[in-house]
């Protein structure tokens, strides 16, 4: 980061280091320094997020197509921009008692289309492909591979059995098959946990590195 070496960065680096320390202090106890930094961070990121969406939504999808693009000159293309704007504006009716209901229409649009969009691709990626790869030809597998495959199959079946909601009825205790499912789940969760510890620790490594960079640049060592 060459930017750290620029003129006048010394004081900024000190401020950033102090802010970072105030965030870290939260693991010990909530304090006013943390609260201040948290509020600052919220303001900055909300502002940045606003700019990004303003740019991607308002400028690129409304302003430029309406006023600067030669492509949008027929009625349909203009309506294609005006209609969603009107739908979006309906959100503001929620402050009125009388017309408040209108705010449900844009929501209905988003919910309906959103629900529809997910069905097809999900079936393809997460069901059909996964089923296809659960079906294998045993003839060219070693004995160990077949054993592993059968374990995978047992894990799939027992875990899915555990999650049956109605077919299993309202018995109070988990039964044998469901317990096998739990057993496999715990192995899987343990693996996720162990795997994740690594990722979480590397975050701290990165932060330590950031401290080092900023501190070194204050003393002109970088």
């Amino acid at each position: 980061m060459s930017i750290l070496r620029e003129k006048g960065m010394g004081i900024i680096n000190i401020i950033v280091i102090l802010l970072m320390l105030s965030v870290l202090s939260f693991v010990f106890k909530d304090n006013h320094f943390f609260k201040f930094t948290e509020r600052l961070l919220v303001g900055v990121s909300a502002g940045y997020g606003f700019l990004i969406i303003f740019n991607a939504g308002f400028i690129k999808k409304i302003w430029i197509p309406l006023f600067y693009s030669t492509g949008t000159n027929n009625f349909f293309q203009v309506m294609n921009i005006i209609l969603p704007c009107l739908l979006g504006l309906l959100f503001f009716t929620s402050f009125s008692k009388k017309y408040g209901f209108l705010a449900k229409y844009p929501l209905a649009f988003l919910l309906g289309t959103g629900a529809g969009v997910e069905i097809g691709p999900r079936i393809e990626t997460s069901i059909m492909r996964q089923i296809n790869s659960s079906v294998v030809d045993f003839s060219n597998l070693s004995l160990f591979e077949i054993f592993n495959y059968i374990i995978i199959l047992i894990a799939i079946v027992t875990t899915m059995y555990y999650f049956l909601f109605i077919v299993r009825g309202n018995k109070k205790r988990e039964n044998f098959i469901a317990n096998i499912g739990i057993f496999f789940m715990m192995i899987g969760f343990g693996a996720s946990f162990g795997y994740t510890i690594m990722g979480r620790l590397s975050l701290l490594i990165e932060v330590v590195d950031m401290f080092r960079e900023r501190i070194f640049s204050i003393f002109g060592l970088l």
Partner: peptide, 16 residues
């Protein structure tokens, strides 16, 4: 663990 039980339960979760 990652390739066998983990794959099994993750697949069951994906289906569900």
């Amino acid at each position: 663990i990652l390739n066998v039980p983990n794959v099994g339960i993750k697949r069951a979760f994906i289906f569900g």
